[in-house]
Design a binder for these strands. Structure first.
Lengths: 223, 223
DNA sequence: GAGTGGTCTAGACCACGAG
DNA sequence: TCGTGGTCTAGACCACTCA
């Protein structure tokens, strides 16, 4: 037997899907909705929390609950985000020294001078992706590592998790919405780490795409 | 100012991290914990819900709340899961016909005969990954597509989301724990889809790794 | 049957946003 | 100031597990 919370969430979901509740529209206030569904406010809030983790609604303190605009999905492919038109990028550069996780990630000794590039991508006024790129200070230039000689290999590790509170607030997403976290490390021909990047993409509006080709030589060896 | 929920969650988190609460241990009952922290049961349950989304505890109805065993992380690499020792795989084969999402995914007409392979991977008694692989019936053999002649390209799309209730129950994870969802499509040299796979991996214990090499020819062209 | 977590109620009080 | 959502309380009742 489905819980009241799920029943209410289902109903609101279909109202959004069918267009009875349009993007950007404000939902009735929580006490009002609770009265409509004949439940207590905590139960109704529980249902709204579900829709929030799905990225369907946005709760704004003091204003109300709003149906979110279904923005086009971002796709992360080979270090780039597509579509890259209409994307606005803010970059902040900081100098720091290697510590914590960065030491094994960049394979450098503790306190090695590093440069951090903080990328914040916006699409139509709303933040869409957060990237922190770390480069050994002696390699730091305006150029991107993949455009620099010597780049030989990248390793991209992808995890799904809940955002930290900082990530949630900078991306302006619910702290219950899953994010795609990508750790990308680029190596040169000697195996030295040229850059390490940590990307965070909201799960409801981004995905990552990897394309693997098999060369004709590899195909030639088969029975 | 941090909420009571966050304060309690932080405290329990550090107790688990420091080993005061060991893996497999049962936490005191919820009314007991609520009394310890001097909060109401809903507030305490809210804190536990947080730990649950992080995969730190497991709630078992009628038994209690348990600290989860930190199982080694699975890594999905190139269609395989590592470590592949100690993994037990159950396969169920079903015949069906193309419908819904499968039609554009496999690029086949509606009602095309398909074979579904359902893979359920277990590690030390607990389910770890769920895969549904679809193959056009005329190509379905016991062989894996990537071992078969003609395979030329794969596209892997990765998203982060909350599991469906079915996925949560088969993987025995909380429905609030983020999962890594991978859609993998394999093409032959003519562009025909050989197989389409949908994989679901629990976010707290799995990640995906992609390694990109640049060939010496590509490196040779740079300035 | 005793003890556990799951769901829900009907409120109280606080913090934020806009006029 | 008013209406909004955010947090929290102190319970009730149900469902599940195990002896």
């Amino acid at each position: 037997m489905p819980s009241l919370r799920d029943t209410i969430a289902d109903d609101l979901r279909t109202r959004i899907a069918t267009g009875h509740l349009k993007a950007g529209a404000r939902l009735p206030s929580e006490p009002r909705l609770a009265a409509q569904y004949k439940v207590s406010t905590p139960t109704l809030r529980n249902a709204l929390a579900l829709l929030q983790t799905e990225g369907l609604i946005e709760k704004i303190h003091g204003k109300g609950n709003f149906v979110r605009h279904p923005l086009s999905r971002l796709t992360y492919t080979g270090g780039r985000l597509t579509p890259d038109t209409d994307l606005h990028v803010t970059i902040r550069t900081t100098n720091l020294r290697a510590s914590g996780d960065l030491i094994p990630l960049l394979k450098v000794p503790s306190h090695t001078p590093l440069t951090e590039f903080l990328y914040l991508t916006h699409q139509s006024e709303s933040p869409r992706s957060l990237a922190r790129i770390y480069v050994p200070r002696d390699l730091a230039t305006a150029e991107l590592p993949r455009c620099r000689p010597g780049w030989a290999e990248t390793r991209e590790t992808i995890t799904a998790r809940i955002p930290t509170s900082e990530e949630a607030s900078t991306l302006r997403i619910s702290s219950t919405l899953a994010v795609l976290a990508i750790t990308r490390v680029a190596y040169d021909t000697t195996g030295r780490v040229i850059e390490a990047a940590r990307l965070v993409l909201p799960g409801d509006r981004a995905d990552a795409l990897f394309i693997t080709h098999r060369t004709s030589e590899e195909r030639g060896t088969e029975g």
